[in-house]
Design a protein around this nucleic acid. Sequence first.
DNA 1: ACATCATTCAATTACTTAATTGAATGATAG
DNA 2: CTATCATTCAATTAAGTAATTGAATGATGT
Lengths: 224, 224
Amino acid sequence: MSSENPKRMLFEQFAAVARTLGNGHRLELLELLAQGERSVERLADLSGLAIANASQHLQNLRRAGLVTTRREGKRIFYRLSDETVVSLLGSLRKVAERNLAEVERVVAGYFRERDALEPVTRPELIRRMRRGLATVIDVRPQEEFAAGHIPGAINVPLKDLARRLKELPSTKEVVAYCRGPYCVLSYEAVWALRHRGFKARRLEDGYPEWKMAGLPVELQSAGS
Amino acid sequence: MSSENPKRMLFEQFAAVARTLGNGHRLELLELLAQGERSVERLADLSGLAIANASQHLQNLRRAGLVTTRREGKRIFYRLSDETVVSLLGSLRKVAERNLAEVERVVAGYFRERDALEPVTRPELIRRMRRGLATVIDVRPQEEFAAGHIPGAINVPLKDLARRLKELPSTKEVVAYCRGPYCVLSYEAVWALRHRGFKARRLEDGYPEWKMAGLPVELQSAGS
DNA sequence: ACATCATTCAATTACTTAATTGAATGATAG
DNA sequence: CTATCATTCAATTAAGTAATTGAATGATGT
């Protein structure tokens, strides 16, 4: 049915890209890739997919031009093609969020006290960092932190949080961030910190959005 | 398979929206709706779909929260839910354009001398209009013009262009616009005007993008 | 060259989606 | 309240997509 009408052909091409986004697992893979490049095995592991299945989804994404690959020895690393993909995902999220009552329900039900956590916006965080009013913690796993993070942030993976409370200021505000607006890590971190008497808030979105906004990033912190 | 993992549920919701965009006909319907609201019959007609088929696609779009409806007598009018939908479509186009060689090929092959037509950007057009350097013509059909257009534009539907050349200035530049970057009307208009000795250029995108950018629009021009 | 490991390919099965047809709704005009 | 018109619904058929399995590729280290 590939009509010769050029307009319809274009719509068909656009639709093919949208169709590729039309699968929860592929969206999850894209979100993982927004953190940085990853091998097939790693992605399969992180997303809970069988390797062959993950491989096929990744190939779909590649066919749609959303990701590209790089070989390194036996491994093949996938990464997002460019930043336009991140902004497409952002638009998709925004529309879904705004238009689907269902999304509202899931968000409200799971992310506890969403508004009570009073997220900090990106420009607000920048101002507060400049004035030394905020300690920024990156609660993602060490590996993701190493691949890029907000300059000056301290890496405190969520699972280490409880035993590293000493490192955090008890009066100054702590701002936690992770992978993006729907990443639970920072929610959990803020919740935990508050229950221990800290002043803690979340960054309203995460590292991919920071990087995408063209703000400076820092690589490879000197090891703990 | 609706897992109880909330993150996966969210991805599933987002994927549902993307899946809805994953069909050329539905994208075409959305593009038509970006011009303004339309009845089912009109949309079926414009898109060349059977009425029952168009109706079902429109209902899909509604389920995904992308469009809403309004009843008026026997007719039901569909329209886009909000501007976030236009920007989602824009992102989708941008990604597809950037990443799919196929799109490049279609565009290059069909839209003749694409670059040679030197499109005018939106801010540039605003400057030129202020200084009285450009006559702006809206080459969409009268009906679409009536539903909203760039203030000061003259409606010269493409099919009337040949017999209304007198109305256009032969020395001042004429800028034509229509429905968006992939709408052929303005391409055709510029091409025709140039071959008749006019100075003509296209606006790089169309009315939906203008409106979406929050710029002023004018309704219902008086007269013939 | 051989064994190993990461990834891809191919084939099967279960499931989803699109177009078409004709009947059913629901508002309006006579 | 009946006829008409726009739209939707329901059922069918054809086509496409996803998960799973096991075999095939292709790079590496011995």
